[in-house]
Amino acid sequence: MELLGLYYYWVFAILLMIGLYAVIVKLNLIKKLIGLSLFQAAVFLLYITMGKLEGGTAPIVTDANANGLFSNPLPQVLILTAIVVGISTMALGLGIVIRIKEEYGTIEEDEIQEIDK
């Protein structure tokens, strides 16, 4: 269990950097946005991992389990917000990419820079 906990954090770190790598290295603008969403997904995992409680269940308190243990609701709330922020950014980014395609005829960063010279 302890090893699994560490593994969660490692996966967070690796995912974060895979996403960042895609954002930095990829020239295709849509690929950059996909990388950005991986990057954000890593953060979701970090928050949710820290909220887990040994032997806990989802924080829905009914009469049947009123004395039980519950995982932390707060990180879950924060990540609900963050997921929505993520999709909003993605939608706006895609809108910009579509306009770039219409104006420049390409969505590869190097070709756009070539046209702008």
Binding site: V23, F39, M50, T89, I96, E103, Y104
Partner: peptide, 24 residues
């Protein structure tokens, strides 16, 4: 448009870094 796309990508990375920091 390319200018704002760059701003969007860098701005989102900045905000996400901040979010990681707050989470930690």
């Amino acid at each position: 448009l390319p200018a704002v796309f760059k701003y969007l990508v860098m701005g989102t990375i900045g905000a996400t870094f901040y979010l990681i920091g707050v989470g930690l």
